[in-house]
């Protein structure tokens, strides 16, 4: 009787042992492909960027990569192509490959939070650049342009240039990106105070040059008398300018952008684009890489959000700017 019970007892103990061993694995969130027990390799840094189809983001990503390399890390750029699914795959890859840190430019302020949390759960710190994620407890730090202030300054210049009456169009960026709304709200905090300025159309062109061209061509069919176009980034400003050029209105309609991209800064100098706002992608990228370095060396005291100043670029100030920043 006693001996007959022993196999049963041992089976039960084996089952408990299996459960116990499973419980000993480091916790990883559901869906993580991080191999258990594989510690992150602190000498590799991933740069995950929303798109490389826009020169501004190329500068952001390459500067982050180069600064990480200069600090002694292997650094690799991953292009999400503005696709949250691709971004998620990149995070899977980064987690399973044991990267030490992620310098991150998100595709979606809300949708990207889960990716950052997965990396955090796997012990990989994430530092956001330029684009905000709407969570305070996921990324280690977020280094972000002060878009609102930039568009307040741009809005004031818009009123000076366009006047206090007239019709204008706004081309929005990606609607899931908080930069889109911070820019739009900063601009409207000024322009909406002048009731004579009428916004006749507001449409997203998703920060994309060719989409901006198409959208504005369509809007011009129904609103041929606009006096200005406010674009949420410089790629859209160039697309809008092309549409106006094709419609023979490039000298009559004032175009305003945001970013400080090299081609637009040149266009401001040539009088084709009325103004833009210089963001400083190199400053943001370098700061993110340096924060990651500090973190990997044991630092833990980082502000959650770090606003980075932006500056108005118009015909009076354009000589001070170039190469995605202030000239030395």
């Amino acid at each position: 009787m006693k001996t007959a019970r022993l196999p049963l007892l041992l089976s039960g103990l084996s089952l408990l042992a299996v459960l116990w061993l499973a419980a000993c694995k480091p916790s990883a969130p559901a869906g993580s492909t991080a191999p258990a027990g594989k510690a992150p390799v602190a000498k590799r840094v991933a740069v995950i960027v929303s798109t490389l189809n826009n020169p501004w983001f190329v500068v952001l990503a390459e500067t982050a990569r180069d600064r990480a390399k200069a600090l002694g890390y292997e650094a690799t750029i991953f292009d999400s192509q503005n696709d949250p699914a691709k971004e998620s795959q990149h995070f899977d890859n980064v987690i399973s490959s044991g990267y030490g840190a992620v310098l991150f430019n998100c595709t979606d302020a809300k949708g990207s939070i889960a990716n950052v949390r997965r990396a955090k759960a796997a012990g990989i710190p994430v530092f956001c650049m330029d684009r905000e994620i709407e969570a305070n407890d996921a990324a280690v730090s977020q280094i972000l342009s002060d878009n609102y202030s930039g568009c307040v300054a741009l809005g004031q210049y818009f009123v000076e240039q366009v006047g206090e009456t007239g019709q204008y169009v706004e081309l929005l960026g990606i609607v899931a990106d908080t930069n889109t709304w911070n820019r739009s709200k900063g601009f409207h905090s000024v322009v909406d105070r002048f009731p004579g300025l009428k916004m006749v159309a507001q449409q997203s062109a998703e920060f994309d040059r060719s989409k901006a061209l198409e959208v504005l061509e369509s809007i011009l069919q129904s609103h041929p008398d606009i006096g200005a176009v406010f674009c949420g980034n410089d790629a859209m400003a160039m697309g809008a300018y092309q549409a106006l050029l094709a419609a023979g209105k490039a000298t009559k309609v004032k175009v305003f952008g945001f970013d400080g991209a090299d081609d637009v800064v040149r266009s401001v100098a040539e009088g084709k684009i009325t103004a833009t706002v210089m963001q400083f992608p190199k400053t943001m990228a370098k700061t993110a890489a340096e924060y990651a370095d500090k973190y990997l060396k044991g630092g833990r005291d980082f502000p959650q959000r770090v606003p980075v100043a932006v500056e108005l670029v118009n015909r009076e100030t354009v000589a001070k700017f170039g190469d995605y920043g202030r000239k030395n």
Partner: peptide, 14 residues
């Protein structure tokens, strides 16, 4: 800035 939930909220205070 880090007392606000996010930049949009911080800008709304302004």
């Amino acid at each position: 800035v880090n007392r606000a939930p996010g930049l949009q909220e911080f800008n709304a205070i302004s």
